[in-house]
């Protein structure tokens, strides 16, 4: 199974090699949760602000229960304040 991981702004520094612009296709395990992906890519807590799967916001308390499915897009935003 594959999903797409998109990391924005300062989080894009955490994309592995092979990423195109701010996204990469990743292999996911059966039942692998959003929280597990965040851990797998070593994304720091302070930078994981908004998490969306296929454009739907996943509350922080739901990240461990929400499994990623084949073809879904996981987008993660840090807090942004630039002006």
């Amino acid at each position: 199974m594959q999903a797409k991981l998109k990391l924005f702004a300062s989080l894009s520094d955490f994309l592995p090699s092979g990423a195109q612009a701010n996204q990469i296709d990743i292999d996911i395990g059966d039942g692998e949760s959003v929280a597990a992906i965040i851990e797998r890519f070593h994304l720091p807590d302070r930078l994981v602000h908004l998490v969306l799967v296929d454009g739907v916001f996943i509350k922080p308390e739901d990240r461990a229960q929400r499994d990623l499915k084949d073809g879904e897009v996981l987008a993660i935003w840090p807090p942004v304040a630039g002006g």
Partner: peptide
């Protein structure tokens, strides 16, 4: 309220 950094805006 708006914010922008790199290629990301809110």
């Amino acid at each position: 309220s708006g914010a922008a950094i790199r290629f990301a805006g809110q």
